[in-house]
Amino acid sequence: MQGGTSVRLYGLEWLKESARISKVFDLLVAAILFLAVSGAFHLHYMLTAGDWDMWIDWKDRQWWVTLTPIMAITFPAALQYVFWTKFRLPIAATFAVVCLLFGQWINRYFGFHLWSYFPMSEVIPALLIPGALVLDVALLLTGNCLFTAMSGAFAFALLFYPANWFWLAPYRLPVEVMGQLVSVGDYISYAFTRTALPEYIRLIERGTLRTFGGHSAIIASFFSAFVSILMYLAWWHIGMLLARVVTTPNTLKNFMGLTDKDEPAETAQKAIDGTSLQGRFAAVE
């Protein structure tokens, strides 16, 4: 430690200038990552659980509760691998769902509300933050993907319904419409019509799960929790795969008679012939 020119970060010595540049780099990456994850996670989520998330009359006690955590734990799990193993940052799940929520509110407000006239009460996105916080803390405390899956991923799905009920309940009040009993949410979607999304398209609870006195949300939550464990592990490993940096030697260069200075010509020739596969791919962890 030499006074004014260097600084210690996590036990390692850094030039002050390098530390400063590194901070700028952090900000740039954070901004890019925020937009990239917002876009990619949003797209993935819309394609898999989109209708349930979009419409107030799709948020049922069976399909919505089952599918949403299973489809939403994907990006958090993959990002947790990268954030935790490369940087020891237990914030990936929270970061991912905040990005998702940001994308959803932008899309609902500008796309659905202002552009397509839907009232906000018809198109509110689900809230995933409580489950994500627990998932992050589970990884922080256990430091292990298997234990995180069994505790955090399980809780991620179990917390989903109770955490959303707070805002959803007013839309499940009973009303009488044309002499029929429906929920406020049913009537909102009936009144503010979707031309190409008729009632029968809805994949919602239409029967009974025949147990727990009709509390189908509880069964759905537990089922979702078990699948979320598997989903979490699968996507943790997808994160692992995607985080690998794979390079291939530039064989074209060799065709043109050029070789790397420090690479024997013989190895380069082997790579061209394909006799040495190891020479062709070098994985950098």
Partner: peptide, 13 residues
């Protein structure tokens, strides 16, 4: 978490 030195310092550490 984000208020601390992030990517490169943590990766190096």
């Amino acid at each position: 978490w984000l208020r601390r030195p992030l990517l490169l310092p943590r990766f190096r550490a």
